[in-house]
Design a protein around this nucleic acid. Sequence first.
DNA 1: GGCTACATTTCGCCT
DNA 2: AGGCGAAGTGTAGCC
Lengths: 219, 219
Amino acid sequence: MRLVIATCEVDYAGRLSAHLPKATRLLLVKNDGSVLVHSDSGSYKPLNWMSPPCTLIEKDDQWTVKAKSGDSLIITIHEIHSDTSHELGIDPGLTKDGVEAHLQELLAAHLDTIGPGLRLVRREYPTPIGPVDILARSSEGGTVAVEVKRVVEISAVEQLTRYLDLLNRDTKIAPVRGVLAGNVVKAQARTLATDRGIRCVVTDYDELRGLTDPTERLF
Amino acid sequence: MRLVIATCEVDYAGRLSAHLPKATRLLLVKNDGSVLVHSDSGSYKPLNWMSPPCTLIEKDDQWTVKAKSGDSLIITIHEIHSDTSHELGIDPGLTKDGVEAHLQELLAAHLDTIGPGLRLVRREYPTPIGPVDILARSSEGGTVAVEVKRVVEISAVEQLTRYLDLLNRDTKIAPVRGVLAGNVVKAQARTLATDRGIRCVVTDYDELRGLTDPTERLF
DNA sequence: GGCTACATTTCGCCT
DNA sequence: AGGCGAAGTGTAGCC
């Protein structure tokens, strides 16, 4: 990893065109060839960058970073204030816990939190337009399709509506009712869902996790 | 901006939990308090980070970064290989050309590329569920709602369908037909759009730009 | 402040 | 490789 503090201008040409006027910035060159241009604020996203795989050619005061697609990043160096390199080695990577997949697992294991008498058919039930998060049989004989989201927004209502339209054409499982489950249900999503006869269930991730054997979740 | 090369472990607790085992990484501390943990590969996204506003407390070999929301990033330092600071000043920021907003402007100025005899009603036509990119009057008396995307995907069809449902209830402008316009139209989006009577138009950004007075587009 | 939509989104999974 | 959905998304614009 190479770290350069430099006064520079940057021009990107690719899916769009972008220009950075002359200023002092951090140029971060990674071992995989990627280049990041960071300012001293903003967030984790660089002002400009080139993703790997790409090649960096330095010629006088001009750096040219090119990707196979033809995207190019041209950095004009006006002054270099610092230029250091460090050997980091490969990173063992990140382990995560708490994303939608886990909420889906927990809900599938505790279908009673969605409704009484439900029996799991399967998670990620495949359809031609994508997998339904949870499909379950109701004690009354019908089917329930559950769409799981950390935050239920209007797009989740649309998504589940598409699934329901399709699933209800299958006479082996129809009628299929819809349920949206999430830790947060946005007001507008709830309104649209209710209008379409879709029920919303507010889940509690911590509570659900408490119901499961805690030894399963340690890392 | 402070740049630290350190052998460290990182734990994040917030919207999810994440852990980074001991390894050598770049710790980037920006002037606004944000912290980025970068490895030597990946892309522009850090392995772990804390967005501003947040506070960094260093106590012995432990860095604690806390956000108002309660999110926390705990960095355990095993060894510091380098620790430098640099004054960068504020950045003048990025100018862009070629984003959706520009495509919308160009299309509104050249409605003939969408269909003959169209007259602009307005761009960003407001509705209760969001703005319609372009609303135009057809020479036959009806209305045309145009959704503009750089890349037209299935979600654009859903979005325009919602607008059309709503707009067609307004007797002053009904009937309203839908048009999807973009530089790229994905096959599945085209299929769904056609099925719903929505026409797709493939635009050419460079060609559209050429139709406009070029002096307007320089930066 | 809430909500919507855009992004050089990136990332990961699955076909 | 391409399609599709999720993201600790971030960010800007509008109401």
